[in-house]
Design a protein around this nucleic acid. Sequence first.
DNA 1: TGATTGTGTACTATTCTAGTCCTATTTAAA
DNA 2: TTTAAATAGGACTAGAATAGTACACAATCA
Lengths: 154, 154
Amino acid sequence: MLRLSKLTDYATVILSFMARDNTQLHAAMEIASATGIALPTVSKILKLLVNAKLLISTRGAKGGYALARAPEKISIAAVISVLEGPIALTECSISHQGCEQASGCDIRDSWSLINQTIHNALEALTLADMIKPVQLQNPAWKQEILIPIASLYR
Amino acid sequence: MLRLSKLTDYATVILSFMARDNTQLHAAMEIASATGIALPTVSKILKLLVNAKLLISTRGAKGGYALARAPEKISIAAVISVLEGPIALTECSISHQGCEQASGCDIRDSWSLINQTIHNALEALTLADMIKPVQLQNPAWKQEILIPIASLYR
DNA sequence: TGATTGTGTACTATTCTAGTCCTATTTAAA
DNA sequence: TTTAAATAGGACTAGAATAGTACACAATCA
């Protein structure tokens, strides 16, 4: 599996929950019971999101968390970056050092293109999109979603 | 990082090497020294690729491995699937059971759409594309690669 | 002042990954 | 017929990463 960690998955669940009611503060406890994720785990994720400036926290009694921006302005790519680091499939896409392949690793450029594609896809999708019901019945999306990536090489 | 395992990375390197000279058999030993990957590891990966029918093996003296199909017919998605299992970002995209979120997990459909996008991107790219030199100088690709995924929700 | 709520850090158990090794089987060549 | 070369299959281990927990501390409000 092209795996995303569980924590990232939780983060999207938590943020989606908050995006649905963006007018008030949500305490960690409230989020935990609403989402079914254990409180310590929720707390851990919220802290990371605050550090990444995706959330704003208010301490003390009646405190809690709120989105730092409108849901339309928070991309899924940003959420993933917080929990997983840079979005890249292979190690050498991040750091070009340490690749000790004897023969020329000519496929690095190909990978970077693939990474770019995926990154763009995730960048275009926002929290606001996540909480809208999707019409999977719409047959148009199948064509629309195809990416002519192979053609880039010709 | 949206991580792909090292083994998957190695597999693409190995397959690229083989695709460059698809006319003869390559022994595991030869591939190991050409790519700089340790022999036991190469061997392990080759076995997996044979089981997945991406390679054909010939036993005995003068034996070795060869691509089962032309490089144009081997997609990167297929390679990734062999080493990582189904291409999906979240657990629930594979099995819809065991998701114990208390409140409705409405974002599952969104994830499946994202997964589909990424899968299509990887499906469109083949081994043949990987061994071609990429012209990153071409400024056109930046526009071309944008995916109107957000628009799908409107 | 005390209750509530977030902050920061450290810790641990578990799972996953990467890599190694060994033995059996098959085939070609001597 | 024997031997060497090569793949096949499985078991195993060390190390790293992940997920989850715990606790002391800081801030705010009533």
